[in-house]
């Protein structure tokens, strides 16, 4: 282990990439991610929305947070916490996403197009929104 003090560590200067270029790329990606869903094609929406989010996040983490030149274990640490979240998702999703458990049901999960509201006023509001006609076919998409 090195006995280096903080000063000498700080001296290894960060190589600064061209931040303006990265910033412009990020903005272009943002525009694409907003325009993509306007085509109203589900797969393109998902790709542009989440695919681009991953790319943007990668650019920020690599170039702004400098994870590429930080010690390797920092990247591992971040990856570990993400993997644990995936693990949590994998363990919990089979139960939470099932509309009826073994001994109880979540009846309102199965009804589509119904606004589940705390008070009736809001229910009325939700129902006259433009979502009603879409609600039905989205539900079909998700059912398989």
């Amino acid at each position: 282990m090195s006995d280096a003090t903080a000063e000498s560590v700080a001296e290894e200067h960060v190589h600064h990439p061209n931040y303006t270029r990265i910033y412009v790329i990020l903005l272009v990606l943002l525009v694409i991610s907003v325009l993509g869903p306007m085509l109203e094609i589900r797969i393109i929406t998902l790709l542009t929305a989440f695919g681009i989010a991953v790319v943007k996040a990668y650019l920020v983490v690599k170039n702004f947070m400098h994870i590429d030149i930080a010690k390797r274990y920092i990247a591992y640490l971040g990856a570990t916490s993400l993997v644990f979240m995936l693990l949590f998702f994998a363990g919990a999703a089979p139960d939470v996403m099932k509309p009826d458990g073994s001994n109880w049901e979540k009846p309102l999960w199965q009804q589509t197009g119904v606004d589940i509201t705390a008070n009736p006023e809001h229910a009325a509001h939700g129902e006259d929104g433009h979502g009603d006609e879409h609600g039905e076919d989205h539900a079909e998409d998700g059912s398989h």
Binding site: G78, S81, L82, F84, M85, F88, F89, A92, A93, V96, M97, K98, P99, W109, Q111, T112, G113, V114, D115, G126, G129, H130, G131, D132, H134, G135, H138, A139, D141, G142
Partner: peptide, 24 residues
């Protein structure tokens, strides 16, 4: 990451199971 991760993982589970949320 794990704080936001737990919250967003819960959200994604609910969201995938409730398609009618899209109208909201």
């Amino acid at each position: 990451i794990v704080i936001f991760g737990g919250l967003l993982a819960s959200y994604i589970m609910f969201r995938l199971a409730h398609d009618m949320w899209s109208e909201q």
